[in-house]
Design a protein around this nucleic acid. Structure first.
Lengths: 207, 207
DNA sequence: GATAATATATGAGCGTGCTCATTTATTTGT
DNA sequence: ACAAATAAATGAGCACGCTCATATATTATC
């Protein structure tokens, strides 16, 4: 059964559109792949010709949002921001594009972006993490740091970023002001660390 | 079918013992509840009389390890440690007890301790998080801080702690030295933040 | 000791996400 | 036109975690 390239694209897009509708209505876990296929006018198995897993289907939306977020960031930055401001802008730009998906993204991001070891890795998630981290390294490099932050620092960055995503997924305040406060705090903190303001071998000055 | 309290305890313990064996051999996800029940000499359904879910079964082991870790911590601390050292000791004590479970804990911790919103919360996980955070607040209070760290600070603490757990689950170096380095870094950093060394409204001194 | 009451064990069965042998529509070859 | 080749659609079916009506073994009552 051959099909035109156009029809294939149509199917793909219809799946994505219907999926976002049902995810939004019933949540990610409560939505079955049968639901989505039915709504798109396809058999269950056909859906998996287009997306290898339910997780990948959802992450496709996330990846696209991230891409748009990066574009927005490039458009919005003036070049006058300091490093913390630029990181804030970068993260906020991503969340802005993710916003329409917010109500159901929790389980998706948790599974796909988690740093915990996984046997079956979701390719989209891997790519999203690498893309994000590379962009961050680029931003840092643009501020004249001699050497890129080490592995430990980037590990902590990703932990903080995931914390922000989790908080954001829960934040129901009108403009997610609390999330903004958290981003502000975390980015400033991270900058301080990689600026060498972080703790040396010496003591932490408690109290 | 009544059963003696002894027989019930025996069943429970046999389930836990067999489960840890099979989890270790095949991993958490690849182990089926049917496997465990069979190994324990019970029917599939019977297992769920003892543990409401596979996740809870695994988290029961984690909770017990955490409890022992807290005991170890109380025994090992001298009272002379500064805050960062004490937090390091607390976290390391927990990981030490978790060590025998390390090879299969990734997926368990990821799902149960994640800060992402969940519809079906695992009670054990909730309790473990609260227990850990309360202990941390207690340690901080013991170092003469006027007021407990705010919500944002504790959110970041939990993010960093999850990052440590994820790193640890991957760390195959003999004594997990890299994890130790990460804990050292993260605890010092956290102390700096709650010590007011964290960023104020003002600028982060980038570059 | 027989009967009733009760607590636990049991495994068929449900709804998942996903697979795969088969069917069906389209294109290519003659 | 017809046949052969091919790519996508299909839905029965699998293994999973988990549920629940039923069977069964123990205890209480007389």
């Amino acid at each position: 059964m051959r099909i035109s390239e156009q029809a294939k694209q149509d199917n793909r897009i219809r799946i994505l559109e219907k999926a976002v509708d049902i995810f939004t209505t019933k949540g990610f876990d409560a939505t079955t792949t049968r639901d989505i296929a039915l709504a798109a006018g396809l058999a269950t198995g056909t859906l998996f010709n287009y997306f290898p897993s339910k997780e990948t289907l959802a992450m496709t939306m996330v990846t696209e949002a991230f891409r748009q977020g990066r574009e927005d960031f490039q458009r919005r930055r003036t070049g006058d921001e300091d490093l913390a401001e630029e990181l804030f802008l970068f993260i906020a730009s991503g969340l802005r594009r993710l916003r329409p998906l917010r109500t159901f993204l929790g389980p998706v991001l948790e599974r796909s972006l988690s740093p915990f070891p996984r046997k079956s890795v979701c390719q989209e998630g891997e790519a999203a993490r690498q893309g994000h981290l590379n962009a961050v390294q680029g931003i840092i490099a643009g501020h004249g740091f001699a050497e890129a932050p080490d592995y430990v620092a980037m590990t902590m960055y990703w932990s903080l970023y995931l914390g922000i995503l989790a908080f954001w997924a829960n934040d129901t305040s009108p403009n997610q002001e609390e999330t903004q406060a958290l981003i502000d705090y975390a980015t400033r903190m991270f900058v301080q660390i990689i600026s060498g303001g972080g703790p040396g071998k010496g003591g932490a000055d408690a109290e």
